[in-house]
Every structure is written in structure tokens, then in C-alpha cells.
């Protein structure tokens, strides 16, 4: 535990953006702390396989990539604080970050790299059956559904990637998507379409998740004829996008209508000294490579900001 410590930069979030910000800040000779409430890696850590991060032609597991990024940041002196940032107070030329343990970190600049968390469907049964067949993490929970039939809801990269992973464990995987085509990358789609265990249910929305003690099925509605159908499954994995983790800075910086932090070209938010990098920032593409690029810019810009204080 680090108590009331003074840093040049405090990075909120330990995913690819946060770890890269720590790496650049450390290399720049700054005292940097990276605050992460869960495990280093953020959302990346629960990705079974990453095939589009440059430098790993064979692909790499999310947890391996996260560990490598953390080790590299540590090598350049970034400190890791396993805690949650609860509040941020702006003082003249500095910020005080109060953590869940009540410890405080003081910094001249902040990099918000707190990422995003999985969006829920918001249908009956989803909350009640969480951990009883409803999951947002295939690598965590997939093994409990070995040999059983499951559904994946969504049509983006995560949904298709995890459907392929689950097909290696489960007897049948049905991907339920509200449109008639996938948003996922072409190469991922090809792999999924070729997999005999994966079938697709197009133009359908999930109306409810049913079951008493555990998931027994889904009620799905066809968007064209509004007809409802029941899909019997024992598990449902939900990948329908993300919400930004921007609550901790919501009173300090300008957010867009969806809660993403608005930044300038140097990735500074509307508040001088607060920078943003990765999924929490308003931008078009949310990929690991983009998060890493953001972080390099934000860390260098933050260093310049500090030098001009």
C-alpha cells in the first residue's frame, strides 16, 4: 500500500493504455503510479486470444500480453497500486486521488485510462441469473459449460472471438445478433462461419433470460415478424458493447453524451493536467493498438505539461 505519496503522474487504470502510460512516464524519468482495482490488463486480461496486436504473428493470449506490458512498465520504474480510485480533487497545479483504502496519491498530472465495462442487455433474468449461467467472461466461466449448449449475444469482435473459444468447449454455440451481418473483423467471421459448432441467429433480440435456479433458455424475438421463440441453452455469454468508466472524473472534465472523455489532439481533457487514453476516450476505434498509441501521446503530452507548470 502506498500512502499519501507524491507522484508526477498518476495513471488511473491498468489496462494496455494505463500500462503503456506507466512505461512512457517511467522512461521519461517521471515518478508514475498506475492504479488498478482488478488485475493488470483490464479487459484484455479476459480475452482468450488476440490476433490483431502487431508483433505477435501467432497471436497472444490476453493475460500473457497484459503481463508483458506490466513487466515492461515495471522495468522503467512505474509503481503499481492495487486499489480503486474513488474521488479526484483538483488543487492548484496538482490533483489528489483518494483510493478505496482511503490512501491518497498526489500528482501533477493525471492520465485517465480507466477503460470501459461490459454493457448489460437489461432484460429480465439477466441480473437474477448472473453466475448461474449468465456470464460476461468466457475465459472465466466457459469450462462450466463443457459439452453443453450455450448462446453468445452480440456481433462484434468480442462476441465472435469468444464464440469461437466457447465452441472448443461446448457442444453447440448459437450467436444471437440483432442485425443481419456481423460487425466483427472479416478474418474472425471466416473462422466462425467455418466452425461446425457455431450457428447464427440473425435479426433477433433477447427479450428475457429464463430459468429458476440456473439458465434454462432465452426468449428471443425476430425483429422482422416480431415472433418470439425459445432457445434452450444452459449458458449465455453477453458481448454487446461497453460503457466508459468515467464516473471518477465526471465532475472535472467534459464527457460526451455517452460518458466518454472528450480530448484535444494531445489527449488532454477539458481540465488542464487531466489526460485520457484508451477506451474511456471518445474516439472511433477501440483496439489495444489504439489504446497503446493514445497512452504514448498522453504520457509525452503530460510530461510537457508538467515541465511547463
Amino acid at each position: 500500500m502506498v500512502d499519501s505519496q507524491k507522484y508526477d503522474i498518476v495513471v488511473i487504470g491498468g489496462g494496455p493504455a494505463g500500462l503503456t502510460a506507466g512505461l512512457y512516464a517511467g522512461r521519461g524519468g517521471l515518478r508514475a503510479a498506475v492504479v488498478e482495482k482488478l488485475m493488470p490488463g483490464g479487459l484484455v486480461a479476459n480475452t482468450e486470444r488476440i490476433d490483431n496486436y502487431p508483433g505477435f504473428p501467432e497471436g497472444i493470449s490476453g493475460s500473457d500480453l497484459a503481463q508483458k506490458m506490466q513487466a515492461q512498465a515495471a522495468k522503467f520504474g512505474a509503481q503499481f497500486v492495487s486499489d480503486e480510485a474513488m474521488t479526484i480533487a483538483a488543487e492548484p497545479k496538482s490533483f489528489i486521488v483518494t483510493l478505496a483504502s482511503r490512501a491518497q496519491l498526489k500528482a501533477k498530472a493525471l492520465i485517465i485510462a480507466s477503460g470501459a465495462y461490459p454493457r448489460t442487455l437489461g432484460v429480465p433474468g439477466e441480473k437474477e441469473l448472473l453466475g448461474k449461467g449468465v456470464s460476461y467472461c468466457a475465459v472465466c466461466d466457459g469450462a462450466f459449460f463443457r459439452g453443453q449448449e450455450v448462446a453468445v449475444v452480440g456481433g462484434g469482435d468480442s462476441a465472435v472471438q469468444e464464440a469461437v473459444y466457447l465452441a472448443g468447449l461446448c457442444s453447440k454455440v448459437t450467436v444471437i445478433h440483432r442485425r443481419s451481418s456481423l460487425r466483427a473483423a472479416e478474418s474472425l467471421q471466416r473462422v466462425a462461419f467455418k466452425n461446425g459448432k457455431i450457428s447464427f441467429s440473425w435479426n433477433k433480440t433477447v427479450v428475457a433470460i429464463t430459468g429458476d435456479k440456473q439458465v434454462e433458455g432465452l426468449r428471443v424475438m425476430d425483429k422482422e415478424n416480431m415472433k418470439e421463440d425459445v432457445l434452450p441453452v444452459s449458458g449465455v455469454f453477453i458481448y454487446v458493447g461497453y460503457h466508459p468508466n468515467s464516473a471518477v472524473v465526471k465532475d472535472l472534465v467534459r464527457l460526451d453524451e455517452n460518458g466518454y472523455i472528450i480530448t484535444d489532439e494531445n489527449l488532454m481533457s477539458s481540465a488542464p493536467g487531466i489526460f485520457a487514453a484508451g477506451d474511456v476516450r471518445r474516439k472511433l476505434v477501440r483496439q489495444i493498438s489504439g489504446a497503446v498509441g493514445d497512452a504514448a501521446t498522453a504520457a509525452v503530452a503530460a510530461q510537457q505539461y508538467i515541465e511547463n507548470l
Partner: peptide
């Protein structure tokens, strides 16, 4: 827990 679960250690 499962060893591949990043939410488990906390």
C-alpha cells in the same frame, strides 16, 4: 475461482 479469471483474485 478458475486460473483464467481476472476478476477472481480480488
Amino acid at each position: 475461482v478458475s486460473p483464467t479469471c481476472p476478476y477472481c483474485p480480488p
